[in-house]
Write a protein that binds this DNA or RNA. Structure first.
Lengths: 214, 214, 214, 214
DNA sequence: GATGAATGAGGGTTCATTCAT
DNA sequence: CATGAATGAACCCTCATTCAT
């Protein structure tokens, strides 16, 4: 078999992680074996272990990448407008986009990633993932704060619990919309996006300064 | 080994599914092998396949059973009060209780329910359970409708999308609260239940008739 | 593939352990894979794990068996005569026979079997193995004691250290004779057994009551 | 990475074998991978194969080196005294020291030396080491002969078989003492060295000229 | 000469499932 | 009907070794 050209490490890591990503997307993480990934990437199984310590690290890197992307999406969303409601919507759409690109990571963010402060054996990726998570929180924190400052969001909100509630609710909503898309279309005659819009708007009411006209 | 007394199929199915349920709760579905279940139930591994086509079907039946329980919880919750807000809260607590008892099914409800109900062969006495999801929807439908009728819920809500949004959001919220319990406690100095209460209340605002004082 | 007839468990265990024994004999324990054993025994690899928890247990059982055999050999050796020297020789021959049948266990007895009193996770086999070891010690203890009593062995010997020294020395001698057989034949013009006899006799002098004529 | 300065082969071989030796000592031969060695030595894995045909050869060279050291130890031991018993003891201690420094090589010497010296390609400066085993034998040969000459060792001994028997017995004894150290301490209330002394002395009796008072 | 890159072959182990009895 | 017995296929991972550059 022809030996590979000398390319920077990163290229191979990218090749592998891209293959993995695709398969994870198609079949889920658990149902994707290192064998599958190797085949998809065009490497031998053993080679995978040259570039990644193990499957966990591979997943970790992918999660990290996805969170970075999520951060970018949200940052961009916030820059699109100064209007709070507008910005809120953009964030929601950012989340939808994110979950369409990284459906399993989306799930993981909700499930697995139990942040373990004590755990001493953080993988480097986990540490970074955690930090990006915090930065995303910051972004949202300021978004809510600004909204309160300019009188568009109720002033009696506690910011942190609000952010977290939104996290949980929005991701739950998006996930349900995705998984039950067909059912929704049949029963409500709404497309997934229409349904989501409805849900997003509904949720916004819960924080909107009362008396304000939409 | 002495042959088992001839007992109705349903008894064996129950024995097996009960054992499975216990193990699923303790170790999760993926980490419970058919072997484990057989041992716990006191049957031979092969016998499991007499009563269930495969692991998937076994899971399917359990999911259904859990939904029956959820139905009961919600029904009970609605009977506790006539006040809409009160009833809403009771529903939320019912969901929390349900997810604590059946954490994995809860997850599955949100995920693409892999269990293929069509191909599962139910016993006659199990068949009726099949429509359980719809009955839960009915319950909620009437709850919202009643709330609108008596002026406690905004009249411009579309009931079905509202119900579904709540499903997604509440389950997302509960799941996040469960998985990030520790984090929440450290960052917000709120217990899981306090955090959830905050979230539940927040969400209620989104459907509450405006102008109403809480 | 034709299903096996229903035979008692023990038959299969025996089949497997026999195959393993043969392979261990030919290639050593480390170089024998579960795959090899399965093939040799005519079972599938997975079947091995039906009858043995893992490779370690398989080895453990074989070691136990071999020690049982060693015990039998020594017991028999001691019954062959009343003369101390004669009995000593028989013991030596028993050891030779044992090492020819179980060369790798012989090695293990010297190396691996660090008796670990503290270790709580004794495999059952390990416990039994340990006990058989003790019984073998008993046998030898009485042999030496008897020899002293009837004035054929020096009375100033400390029995336990003597036994242990003999264990180490005899096994070392036998092992060397086995591994260097060719070399011995070329350089000394002695067969392995002749060489061993020389060594055995030499060692006997070290405990023989002085002044006694051989 | 900067290419290495051009240094004589022997330097690289030494670097590599030193690294290997350290690791072998720490983790055993089997548990030390070529990867480990490369890292420890600061070379690339592939480079190891420039200087050594394979792992086996690397081990072979190390074994040889260790035998050189053993030779030195024994030579030194013999020079310490003129008294036969004294010299015998020093030899024993030399062996103990050797086995503590090179535990695995010690084992290999007793086992069927798998290292194929014939097919190993030695550097010129390593070639001379090849006959080291014979030279050790010579040393011992003269020791016994001298002992006989001065009437301290029984004159009816055959020298070569005696030497070999000692080899086997002493190494067996030392190995057992090492592996069963804990057991010995508990059962005999002797330290490893005390036990060994007892065994060494016992064995000496077997060659000592009778009638001699110790 | 030195190495980065790659891999074939194999390690032990688990598990859902099947089938003759 | 119930099961003991058996297995194929897969799992993640490791390692000594090779070869083009």
């Amino acid at each position: 078999m022809a030996r590979r050209k000398k390319e920077p490490q990163s290229v191979h890591r990218k090749n592998i992680s891209s293959a993995a990503e695709q398969l994870f997307f198609k079949k889920g993480i658990e149902n994707t074996s290192m064998n599958d990934i190797a085949k998809e990437a065009g490497y031998s199984k053993a080679t995978l272990y040259v570039y990644f310590k193990n499957k966990e690290e591979l997943v970790g890197v992918l999660v990290l990448e996805s969170m970075q992307k999520l951060y970018d999406y949200i940052k961009l969303a916030l820059e699109k407008s100064n209007d709070t409601k507008e910005r809120y919507r953009e964030i929601c759409y950012a989340l939808v986009k994110y979950q369409e690109e990284y459906p399993f990571y989306f799930k993981m963010v909700l499930e697995k990633l139990k942040v373990n402060f004590e755990s001493t054996h953080f993988l480097p990726e986990e540490k970074e993932t955690f930090l990006i998570g915090e930065r995303i929180n910051d972004l949202l924190f300021h978004f809510v704060k600004d909204g309160i400052t300019c009188g568009e969001i109720r002033s009696d909100m506690e910011i942190l619990p609000t952010i977290f509630s939104f996290w949980g609710m929005l991701s739950g909503l998006i996930q349900l919309a995705t998984n039950k898309e067909e059912y929704i279309e049949q029963r409500m005659e709404k497309s997934k996006m229409e349904f989501l819009s409805y849900g997003f708007d509904m949720l916004y009411n819960s924080i909107k300064m009362q008396g304000e006209k939409e």
